[in-house]
Amino acid sequence: MGTDRCAYLSRLRRVDPVPKIWLALTALLLCVLVDSLAVGIFTLGALSALNLSLGGQKAGDLFHFLKVPMTFLIIGCLPIILRPIGTAEALWAFRLLGRWTWGVTAENLRLGLLVLCKAMGAVSAMYFLSMNTPMTDLTMALERLHVPRLFVELTELIYRFIFLLAGEAGRIRVAQEARLGYRDFKGSMQALGTLLSTVFVRSLRRGDRVFSALESRGYTGVLITLPGQYASGRWLYGLTAAIAVCQLLILAAERRLLP
């Protein structure tokens, strides 16, 4: 599901997740914080390159995932770029219903591009984390970072159950489609309603069974698992600092070259 498969195939899988979290978060926060087009493009390039070279991800996979947030970003940037502009000087404008002037000004175009580049840089930083760290490692790292135990445990259980329920919903869906369940709107509603309620009831019953199974194996309220054997990821801290320095240098250069 999603980036999960890539994370298990990643070359960085055995590396301690905490440095990976710091690397991704530092790059992400700096990219969002500095408000610069060049830094956004640099972060997108640098973190994607790290993802491909260190993580050994396929370029096609990464490209596929980078396309996902594009839907939101394109429709989300439209209102920034194209908007009522009054009497401002426009690159391109039209009269809406003969009354309001709408158009694109250089200023708004710049802002739209800035938001787009910044967001893509941030997304690539997040992908460095999620495409190279399996979710179970991430939840264990959360615990080491002092997130409350109950929250971590809920996260772990939900993560496990997602795959159970998604598989079940998928099988029911195939069965329904084979019986022309989704032929028209009314039929689809009926079929989807039945699917959801069946999955829900089954998940309740399954929750009950899981609990009984746990209890009969001596469960007293906490699930303790052994942490994986990680390779030390200290060298990633150096990389984190290097990327941060590059981001700041690019920011300074951009400020100097472009007034």
């Binding site: 109950l150 445990e153 809920l154 259980l157 939900i158 496990r160 159950f161 997602i162 159970l164 329920l165 998604a166 919903a169 959801l196 999955v199 829900f200 998940s203 309740l204 399954r206 929750g207 009950d208 899981v210 609990f211 746990l214 209890e215 469960y219 309220g221």
Partner: peptide, 19 residues
Amino acid sequence: PRAKVLLAMCGAFAFVLSA
């Protein structure tokens, strides 16, 4: 204690529902 597993099931259900 049963509530924890039930809640987790409900959370997973919400994820599947939104997908």
